[in-house]
Write a protein that binds this DNA or RNA. Structure first.
Length: 706
DNA sequence: TTGCAAGGGATTTTT
DNA sequence: TCCCTTGCAA
């Protein structure tokens, strides 16, 4: 079918697509066809403007988004055309690609055999560094330090610059740790996620000709989810588009929910200033939800102060009012959700097109139990990602070490799994030796083994050295390297059948290893470059194996609001809409944090196409004790007046407001004079016709609205 | 060295 | 309530 830009796009979308010269900001509300704009713009540039695909860069944040964009472009203009050198990918993967070609020009000792480490390794490295510096990890929490280092890096603050700040003890500690941490990374030829981008910018600073090269190679730069960029990503985009200014960014400031990770939504708000003469297009027509849902969502997010004014509208019709349900306990809430879903399914709805969205992963358990009891198929997103699993990381450690023998993190893991009688004591001896020679731990190992007295440990370690060397030599192909690990590492045997039957964990680990082998096999068949190096850099940037494509699930999706961004469902249940849960209690005392929680709630609600149900509990028990909850302020802010709310509480305890006429079992009818709270309890003052004015706790009084 | 048990801490998490 | 880290015993 021929590409029909006029027919497929609405006027605003078309404007953004046809704007080829100069900067362009597309403010795309939820469900307004943002991906469509990017993909059509790519197609437009290539087919209508004759831009070579290799001169275009399209950047996203997730592999899933990148993959989706790629396949949609394929559909629009055909695979042959779009595969010809078009750079579509995540910030991290594209920067990784640049560094793979250019990192040696940095002159910091990195080589193009660098390995990318994940969150987990990053924390472990900080732990190692703390130990080395004799700093107590209890006083200096590794997580916090990791967070601070990451924050510094993403603001382009180097290890030397940070020491100048150091006010609080943790800041001083961070500065100290940061320096050694970065040194260890360099020595190990390792890059953390932030380095991928930060080092590209350092490279541009150091070698202007490299910056120039990429700046002129990419005549057009397109960025998705621009509200989520942090300072260094922003800087990268700016550098790449410096000469030509052909930059298109698409985003929604109302869906900025990653500030806690350094995303800075002020950057999208300042786009017009940063890129003078920018065209600004607002996409406000929503193609996803009903007007009822949008009204509620609009009213909610309009309370935020720092935002571009936007108001979503739709042709989809009013639809059913938003449902609101008050439960006594999380269990009751869960059973309400389960029975509602059950009713929908009986009515012919597809559970795979529904989602239960919550603030915290810990809320999933109760829901899961209720769905289980009702025999409703479900799927939980979150928990341990495939490549984070111990057994998978173990295999990867062998591969990494074979590829890059300087990788001490991989060494530490591989050498102890399976156990070879090489523990803490031996390791510190080895470290000593390595330090003397100025080599990595693995490279010092043969000497250490040479000094060791004969025995099982010695034999095992000799075999280990042998294996790693072989992996390195087989390194031209990922699959042969992986086969070596499976054949000789002894990892597989750890999870073999012997021992207690029905060991669930063991079995699942075995299955994961099998799955791992399948992914290597697939990589071998599908990739142009099947080398171990290519494999490792791909794997490092993919966190979840089973990326959640709509419709591929097996049942109702249980998911956090964060992970739900970008997805849509026919029916959505947002649970735990309580003060302290959603908004989260850690956000309560900062207005900036509350605004982010509000956006998060907005994201959750705008996932729904047809029906949105919001539920909350009045009593919730958590680890810090049980307590009474107030409904989330966001419920009020959505202005769900009773006429607009369907399906109230099972207990028939409607929210009361001043002026309501109510019915009490004993006192008869009366008028509500006042609603107030004392602690966590809600009270009403009612003027009863027969008995006069009474103060009642709504929780206990059986009140019916008349 | 390693495995197990008790204790402390507990948002969210694209890469 | 649950999970991860740490400390202790075999």
């Amino acid at each position: 079918m021929p590409l029909d830009f006029q027919g497929d796009l609405n006027p605003q979308q078309l404007r953004a697509v046809e704007k080829c010269k100069g900067p362009c900001l597309v403010l795309a509300g939820a469900g307004s066809g943002k991906t469509r704009v990017i993909t059509y713009k790519l197609a437009y540039l290539i087919t209508k403007r004759g831009i070579a695909p290799s001169h275009i860069m399209a950047v996203t944040f997730t592999n899933k988004a990148a993959g989706e964009m790629r396949s949609r472009v394929d559909v629009l203009i055909g695979t042959d055309l779009s595969r010809k050198g078009l750079w579509i990918g995540t910030f991290h993967s594209l920067c990784g690609r640049i560094l793979r070609e250019q990192i040696e020009k940095l002159g910091l000792g990195y080589t193009n055999r660098f390995v990318i480490i994940d969150e987990d390794d990053r924390t472990r490295l900080v732990r190692q560094v703390l130990k080395e510096l004799n700093m107590d990890p209890k006083t200096y929490e590794p997580q916090k330090i990791v967070y601070r280092i990451s924050d510094a890096k993403s603001n382009l603050v180097g290890p030397e610059e940070l020491s100048d700040y150091g006010y609080s003890y943790i800041e001083k500690a961070t500065a100290t740790v940061y320096k050694l941490y970065q040194k260890r990374l360099q020595q190990g030829n390792l890059l953390d996620f932030d380095d991928l981008i930060a080092l590209v910018i350092r490279l541009f600073d150091k070698c202007p000709e490299v910056e120039e090269y990429y700046g002129s190679k990419f005549e057009h730069v397109l960025v998705d989810e621009y509200q989520d960029v942090n300072k260094m990503q922003y800087e990268l985009v700016k550098r790449l588009s410096k000469t030509h200014g052909n930059v298109t960014v698409v985003g929604d400031d109302d869906q900025s929910i990653y500030a806690f990770r350094g995303a800075n939504s002020k950057l999208i708000l300042g786009f017009e200033k940063d890129y003078p003469g920018a065209m600004v297009v607002k996409l406000e027509q929503n193609y996803r939800s009903t007007q009822s849902i949008l009204d509620a969502a609009n009213s909610l997010v309009a309370r935020n102060r720092t935002r571009f004014a936007k108001k979503l509208w739709t042709d989809n019709g009013t639809g059913t009012p938003v449902h609101l349900f008050e439960a006594l306990t999380p269990e009751e809430e869960a059973s309400f959700v389960a029975s509602s879903i059950d009713a929908l399914v009986r009515g012919g709805a597809d559970p795979r097109d529904m989602a239960v969205i919550y603030r915290m992963n810990s809320q999933s358990r109760v829901i899961e139990e209720a769905l289980l009891a009702s025999n409703i198929p479900y799927q939980i997103v979150g928990g341990l990602k495939f490549y984070q699993r111990q057994e998978v990381k173990d295999v990867l450690a062998y591969l990494r070490l074979g590829f890059n023998p300087s990788d001490n993190l991989a060494f530490e893991r591989a050498v102890s799994r399976p156990s070879r009688g090489f523990g803490d004591k031996s390791l510190s001896e080895l470290k000593q030796l390595a330090a003397e020679h100025g080599t990595s731990w693995f490279m010092a190992l043969p000497e250490w083994v040479g000094q060791a007295k004969a025995g099982k440990t010695k034999d095992k370690l000799e075999a280990f050295v042998d294996l790693i060397v072989h992996i390195g030599a087989a390194g031209e192909s990922a699959i042969s390297a992986a086969n070596l690990v499976f054949a000789s590492s002894g990892l597989l045997e750890q999870y073999s059948d012997e021992g207690e039957e029905g060991d669930f964990e063991r079995q699942s680990r075995r299955e994961n290893l099998g799955e791992f082998m399948r992914t290597v096999d697939e990589f071998d068949r599908m990739s142009e470059d099947c080398s171990l190096g290519a494999y490792l850099s791909q794997v490092a940037l993919i966190q979840d194996q089973d990326s959640m494509k709509p419709g591929t699930g097996t049942g109702v999706l249980l998911i956090t609001a964060h992970s739900a961004k970008g997805l849509e469902f026919s029916d959505v249940f947002v649970v735990g809409a309580e003060e302290g849960v959603f908004p989260h209690r850690r956000a309560l005392d900062s207005s900036a944090d509350i605004e982010e929680e509000r956006r998060l709630f907005y994201v959750a609600c705008t996932r729904a196409r047809k029906e949105l149900s919001i539920t909350y509990c009045t009593q919730r028990t958590s680890y810090y004790g049980s307590g009474f909850q107030e409904p989330s302020r966001f419920i009020k802010e959505m202005e769900l007046t009773r006429e607009k709310v369907a399906g109230v509480s099972s207990r028939e305890r409607p929210e009361l407001i001043e002026g309501d006429t109510v019915m009490h079992n004993i006192f008869g009818t009366g008028k509500v004079l006042e609603v107030f709270y004392d602690g966590n309890n809600q009270y009403v003052v009612i003027d009863f016709k027969k008995v006069g004015i009474k103060k009642l706790a709504t929780q206990y009084a059986q009140l019916k609205k008349v």
